[in-house]
Design a protein around this nucleic acid. Structure first.
Length: 156
DNA sequence: GCCAACGTTGGC
DNA sequence: GCCAACGTTGGC
């Protein structure tokens, strides 16, 4: 199957591209939206490439590239009773939430800001910019992925 | 199944 | 902190 491309959002105050660079890989825990979960469960494959997007940041924007390094597994955070992501409906036999593992690929020297993405003509169709688009895990077309990476690489 | 109320996301 | 644009919940 052909490699696919994705965009995954994280608040850098919580987990940034620098954190991923340090950790090398991480489980993408805490997604609590069914559409986003289904992308991870059903559509993501090892080797798929991911734009790591900083949301609720100054500035918001694409911060680097990661790679899917492990297929979807039950999200451990749903079983932590005192945790922020506890899911009381979940059992070991029937988990509710799943997450993939991603590994660090590269950090852009400088964030490709949302403002720059908006002003780039070839990116007007990217899912990220569509009205009401809030999904924290979303597909990206190959041409948009390539463009974002080129914009990120042309810095520094 | 409908839909109002409520909660969340995330840019500004 | 505000609020648009969602998604979820729960009464009926």
């Amino acid at each position: 199957m052909a490699k696919r491309y994705w965009l995954m959002k994280s608040e850098p105050e919580v987990y940034s591209i620098e954190d991923l660079a340090r950790d090398k890989h991480t489980l993408w825990e805490g997604v609590r939206n069914y559409q986003a979960r289904n992308f991870m469960m059903n559509d993501m494959a090892i080797g798929d490439e991911v734009i790591f997007y900083h949301s609720n940041a100054e500035p918001p924007g694409a911060a680097g590239v990661a790679r899917v390094s492990g297929k979807a597994v039950p999200d451990p955070s749903q079983f932590i009773k005192k945790g922020e992501y506890f899911e009381k409906r979940a059992t070991a036999a029937k988990p509710v939430w799943f997450c993939v593992e991603v590994e660090f690929s590269k950090a852009f020297t400088k964030i490709v800001s949302l403002e720059e993405i908006k002003s780039e003509k070839s990116l007007t169709e990217i899912a990220l910019l569509q009205k009401g688009q809030r999904l924290s895990v979303q597909p990206v077309e190959a041409k948009h992925f390539t463009k974002l990476v080129a914009m990120g690489a042309h810095r520094g």
